[in-house]
């Protein structure tokens, strides 16, 4: 129970970072925290029905649910890819406008376009 409440807090901190922070790099950090919280929740809860890793070395042990782990593997890789692209976009925006602040970027882009 406590750990799940903490995960909710983590998720909301990440969401706060995305919504309220002005610096676009911090926004990207926030997105990663958000993603990590969702992944951790999935893995944590999936591990409640067993004690062993899902590798069948010693017969039919009480293994955890392998599906969340396989799904989260995909979700993590996708998260990393999106982050890489977001960082590249941020670098490009910095090159165009000379700022990492979202409001300044908006203004300068509007001036140019």
């Amino acid at each position: 129970m406590v750990e799940r409440v903490l995960l909710l807090c983590l998720l909301l901190i990440g969401f706060w970072g995305v919504v309220a922070k002005k610096n676009i790099i911090k926004k990207i950090f926030g997105l990663n925290i958000l993603n990590a919280a969702a992944v951790m929740l999935f893995i944590l809860e999936g591990n409640r029905i067993g004690t062993e890793a899902p590798i069948l070395e010693s017969g039919l042990a009480q293994v955890v649910d392998p599906i969340p782990q396989a799904l989260m593997l995909t979700a993590i890789v996708i998260g990393v890819c999106v982050t890489a692209l977001a960082l590249a976009l941020a670098v490009h925006l910095y090159q165009i406008t000379g700022s990492f602040d979202i409001d300044t970027i908006r203004e300068r882009v509007k001036d140019e376009a």
Partner: peptide
């Protein structure tokens, strides 16, 4: 290759990636 397009893409990325979480 328009500056606004990069910003538009960034906004779309942030909002839609958060929504996908």
């Amino acid at each position: 290759r328009k500056p606004g397009a990069t910003l538009a893409s960034f906004s779309y990325l942030m909002v839609s990636a958060s929504a996908m979480v």
